[in-house]
Nucleic acid binder design. Sequence first.
DNA 1: GCGACGATGTTTGCATGCAATACGCGCCCG
DNA 2: CGGGCGCGTATTGCATGCAAACATCGTCGC
Lengths: 236, 236
Amino acid sequence: MQYAPDVATPEPAPEARSLRGRSAAHVAERIRERILSGELPPGERLSERSLTEGLGVTRTPLREAFKILETEGLLAIVPNRGAQVVELSPADVDMAMELLAGLESVAAELACARGTDEQFAEVARLHARMVACQRAGDLVGYFRVNQDIHQNIVDCADNPALSRVYRTESARVRLYRFAGNRVSARWSRAVMEHEQILLALQQRQGPLLRELLRAHHLNGWRVTRRVLENELQPDL
Amino acid sequence: MQYAPDVATPEPAPEARSLRGRSAAHVAERIRERILSGELPPGERLSERSLTEGLGVTRTPLREAFKILETEGLLAIVPNRGAQVVELSPADVDMAMELLAGLESVAAELACARGTDEQFAEVARLHARMVACQRAGDLVGYFRVNQDIHQNIVDCADNPALSRVYRTESARVRLYRFAGNRVSARWSRAVMEHEQILLALQQRQGPLLRELLRAHHLNGWRVTRRVLENELQPDL
DNA sequence: GCGACGATGTTTGCATGCAATACGCGCCCG
DNA sequence: CGGGCGCGTATTGCATGCAAACATCGTCGC
């Protein structure tokens, strides 16, 4: 790698060309993936040494990536004690879910007013894939497609700022929401709710879509919260 | 606390104690202030050299601060060409205003449901100060208090995530919104709208407050957009 | 025996150094 | 006379070095 092949190597590698100037962003992306996948769980302390070795960069771009992820709300940096993955209390997730539900209600009416039929068709395709995942019992795939559907609905509002905020805030709580999908009763009902949501979107019924999304969020979060608070055991 | 009042405090200075570990955040705050005050206008290129000299830090924390501000949407960092203050097109501001209006509508109902009378009283105090600024012709003071009022209303929703997002997104467009307040006809009408908003809040009429805020935003932004597009000359 | 203290290795925070890229400017050629 | 090219300088991107803070553990005093 970059371990000083001394002379005669102007190019670092034929494949990884010119990452210069994007190092921190690249490292942040890698760490973000690991956090969102659960590989780096909430509370995990991130040592600069191990990450630099694992990612093949030095501490400077790594520390810049930490600042990015801290601003996104994924890391907490404690002075002189390094970075750790943010741990959210049920109350924190509660607040975040309220925000996400609010963002989706705002998006709902805009999406019905401005979304293109092509965008709606894409949501419908995702919906079909989600149903397929459910049938196949593929919980992870289901959850990922589910997230994609909600992001796509928000994107239908055709407001980049709204989409960006929704994406960032959604990422913050992704791990916590996953818990609620591990309950079979909720799973089948969520799919039915999605059917209605898709219909309302395609028929451009803004106020209805708004209420459906709000209710969908509320229902899902009610179950998830009980799981997080250990009042309900996942059965999947 | 952790300031070890033990013995012989080896603190370098009584005033600037232990900034270690907070350098980047401190620098980011300073630069943020300069951007929001207009001292660093949109498009301005930020040279590392001049900023390090002006702020008394080295390039490492400064570059970390750049990453923070980039993530907040205040700076754009072009690889190998440094950082510059983000320049928003009227369309960008349009999208941002739509988002802010949406966040306020979400906050409206929550604020009416959960806000305390003390919080409402604070909004009322700010409103009085705003009116005083208007009477005194203090445009800058008026604008600042105006921002405070809107932030306070959002804060009444008692949702930290919502407050944080509103604050960040509001900051991104602060400079652009200011233009619209430089029109006298809009100024007096905005104050009237605020009277109604305050009343609806105090009477906890969520849906009404929601609509009033939406209309208030729409009215304000309509004027501001015309100023930004040079179709309307400020008369203040 | 127990707790506080201190030595030492580890980790973080920031300064500095080096290499790569961008930029300004004069020159050459058309 | 204008445009492209090359060179020198400035600036950025990242690696490394050094000092402060932390942590771990052994020792000492009580």
